[in-house]
């Protein structure tokens, strides 16, 4: 770890100002990912701006919208009564992520900002376009069992590791950010980016902007939900494939449905075509199979992750069935 200075501003403005003055600086909240990156020499900030003093820890109801402060801990969010009753999908996804100890430290904003777990990104003696643009992608010709099957590019096939973000993408959340020019709102599904030619950019947050909150609009998904995470060990493992499903069923017809996947792309992967195919249809195995077929069309696999297409196909159906019968 390199030497760095440390500041702890106590206002949002002071935090943003501190960032504006020093472009190698990084905000730190729980530090569950940033400290790893610093220890591995992947990120070498000369200044850490500790934002834990900022008043961003609130979970509150704004009309029908749930407002979640960026510093709310993952464990607190998962256990919150409003989340458990109104957005159980989010609670399930959070509890599928990391370990209890990490969830006790990790914040909502930090979860969104976590970097990929691609090994080539973390090992500074191997090539990685995300860490060092134009050095090449180590994963494409290397070990890529955990890597993307959707939306990747020739520059990067890394996946976003979050479970929470998959649920937030499915629930049409909105990200609130603050910067020198004031506040702005970003639809959650537009927050993270695909790698394209700029894999070094994980998201559309400007350098000196700070996430302040996430908002979830009202929706009817309290019963028929499922977060299915398929992984190599039962806990504390990243998803091979995960599927978030939320649906509203009445009179044996799917009135409204959201499906998103994790572990398959550089961002939480919404499945709009599969959602469309199921809207207005009966929740049957045949329809779910059709949706899974649609969802996995266009998957591109590499030397070691070919199984992910089949796993996604099966997992989507499994999650849909689980949600429908919940």
């Amino acid at each position: 770890m390199n030497p760095f200075s440390y500041v702890r501003p106590n206002s949002l403005k002071a935090a943003i100002d501190a960032m504006a003055r020093d472009h190698s600086a990084r905000f730190i909240a729980g530090g569950t990912n940033l400290l790893d990156l610093m220890k591995n020499g992947v990120t070498l900030p000369e200044k850490l701006i500790d934002i834990n003093q900022l008043p961003l820890r609130e979970i509150r109801q704004d009309g029908n919208t749930l407002h979640i402060g960026a510093l709310v801990l993952n464990s607190d969010l998962a256990a919150h009564e409003l989340v458990k009753t109104q957005h159980p999908l989010l609670s399930e996804a959070l509890l599928a992520g990391a370990s209890q100890q990490l969830r006790n430290m990790a914040t909502v904003g930090g979860n969104m900002m976590q970097r990929t777990r691609c090994t080539y990104f973390y090992d500074t003696s191997m090539p990685c376009n995300k860490r060092q643009p134009n050095s090449g992608c180590g994963a494409i010709g290397g070990i890529n069992r955990m890597h993307a099957i959707f939306g990747a590019s020739d520059n990067c096939i890394a996946v976003h590791p979050s479970d929470m973000c998959v649920a937030l993408a499915a629930l049409d959340a909105t990200v609130l950010v603050a910067g020198p020019k004031g506040e702005r709102r970003i639809p959650f599904t537009d927050f993270h980016r695909l790698p394209g030619n700029t894999p070094q950019l994980d998201n559309n947050l400007a350098k000196n902007e700070l996430i302040t909150a996430v908002e979830i609009p009202p929706h009817p998904f309290t019963k028929h939900i499922c977060y299915l995470k398929v992984r190599d060990r039962a806990s504390y493992a990243f998803a091979l494939v995960s599927v978030a499903v939320a649906m509203d069923i009445s009179d044996n017809v799917i009135r409204n449905i959201r499906i998103a996947m994790g572990g398959v792309a550089h961002k939480p992967w919404r499945l709009p075509d599969a959602e469309k195919a199921l809207t207005g249809k009966a929740p049957t195995s045949d329809n779910f199979r059709l949706a899974a077929t649609i969802a996995t069309q266009g998957a591109k696999t590499y030397a070691h992750n070919g199984f992910k297409k089949d796993l996604a196909f099966n997992s989507i159906q499994t999650a849909l069935l689980k949600a429908a019968t919940a």
């Binding site: 777990r117 090994t119 080539y120 290397g142 060990r233 039962a234 806990s235 504390y236």
Partner: peptide, 25 residues
């Protein structure tokens, strides 16, 4: 423990990626 033979380096040399069983297993 998985090696990238091109480099002769391990790609999962940490507790997160090298999976020893946890309580849930």
């Amino acid at each position: 423990a998985i090696l990238d033979h091109r480099f002769g380096r391990f790609v999962n040399n940490n507790y997160a990626d090298y999976h020893v069983p946890v309580n849930a297993d």
